[in-house]
Design a protein around this nucleic acid. Structure first.
Lengths: 243, 243
DNA sequence: CGCACCTTTGAATGAGATCAAAGATGGTGG
DNA sequence: CCACCATCTTTGATCTCATTCAAAGGTGCG
């Protein structure tokens, strides 16, 4: 089963005290499995729990009235999902499992306890949430002000950058278990146009594709076409003392 | 000078203890003024302080390589700005004063103190930050999946909804001190097209314009065309006990 | 009063959407 | 193990919404 995935994530940034480690372990006592395609939290549902991703890919999305969908963000191991529950009783977004996933669930009362007892962890969670917000802002700029090709390039950059946190820095190839429709829903494009753009990137020798595997051939060019900025490192020197 | 604007904002949601009130007042000891157009925080600058907006409008934006700009979010009285400083040493975004503004500045060490001493305020700040994130997500859906007309409508809805928190629920008219270029930069459109869409909304009897004043004539229709969801109320029953 | 900036309108262009249909892939049950 | 069916990818043709380019009015501030 292994320890807390959130603790793993946080310990990339600070050395956790034993008490902090324990508190985080307790958050992940409840493990739940969902199949590929399962809806973990449904838009406008009274959500009751938050989750930490233990393994797998998910996305959060918004369904527009006319049947179209916007995917806001993808979630990986160590991510906290369902944070909107801290502000709203009905979930503003749907969370869907992209692959089979294992999640650890906990209530917001657990979060209250954490804030009460562990100021440093609380501040760190705020910092992560702020970093997440900045990524969303980057996505807005990508969708609002760049070409279809740049949006696809940017999404690929983001996937590599986030995968490298989990699986080491070197990798130049990875599985992206998404359909072109999902990529379109994340970038504000149609599946057809996603296909043309990905083909374009491959034809120009920037990436190589086979099935859902993507290899970077010219990473520098991809980054520059995407206008991509890596936002993985976060600042921790200001945090309050651990308990 | 008056008390803390952040305290005012938070007291819409919970009754603050005397100690909490005092802690927030201390955050806003330093008042600073900026003229319309001034850049408060510049992208890629080593930012050193956070701010609470005491009065005026600002926006945060990202400048793309090719000279285009994306405005992520507008900020009003009681908003905390510069939160990215909690995660990044260099600001990922620029903050610009849209009107003359008064800001209260404080350091992240003050935030650390707050987390150490006031778990309920900390949790509340996280909740506000999460609510802000949800608004950004709504904006992504608007830009990624809706027509130019709907994006403009949605922005107008957001302005009214936020203005009503500050100035009472009834208002059906307000000043929107933005140029059409700024509206375009926020919605991912060109100024020319913003003009056409606003004219369209006015021609169809949905809004009425004179100068920068906008009056709602058919609010229901505006909301429905915009696919707008109001996200102003936030949940507070889960928060830890006050100190 | 004059100049800079903003708004408005028109005409031409273009990026991405839509519609349609032919391959490829893969999971399921027989 | 393989055949079948649903789903996904790929490609072509056409259309449309928003951009671009251009230029004529407004507005307000110094």
């Amino acid at each position: 089963m292994g320890g807390s995935r959130l603790a793993e994530r946080l310990s990339h940034h600070v050395a956790l005290s034993r008490q902090e480690q324990d508190a985080l372990d307790r958050l992940e006592e409840q493990e739940r499995l969902f199949r590929r395609g399962a809806i973990v939290i449904s838009e406008n549902d009274g959500a009751r729990e938050l989750f930490v991703v233990r393994s797998g890919w998910l996305h959060s999305s918004l369904n527009l009235g006319d049947g179209s969908r916007q995917i806001m963000r993808f979630h990986f191991q160590g991510d906290i999902i369902g944070l909107p529950l801290l502000a709203f009783s009905e979930s503003p977004e749907s969370i869907t499992a992209v692959t089979d996933v294992a999640l650890a669930s906990f209530t917001r009362e657990r979060v209250a306890e954490l804030f009460d007892r562990h100021p440093r962890l609380s501040a760190l969670i705020l910092a992560l949430s702020v970093a997440d917000r900045v990524s969303l802002a980057d996505r807005i700029a990508s969708i609002g002000r760049t070409s279809a090709r740049a949006r696809i390039a940017s999404l690929i950059c983001e996937f590599f950058s986030r995968a490298r946190i989990l699986h080491g820095a070197g990798a130049d190839a990875m599985q992206i278990p998404l359909t072109q429709e999902e990529i379109g829903d994340a970038t504000g494009l149609t599946a057809v146009h996603v296909n043309r753009m990905m083909r374009g990137l491959a034809d120009d020798g920037i990436i190589e594709r086979s099935g859902h595997n993507v290899r970077l051939l010219d990473e520098r060019r991809l980054i520059s076409e995407a206008n991509f900025t890596d936002r993985t490192g976060i600042e921790t020197d200001w945090l309050p003392a651990p308990r």
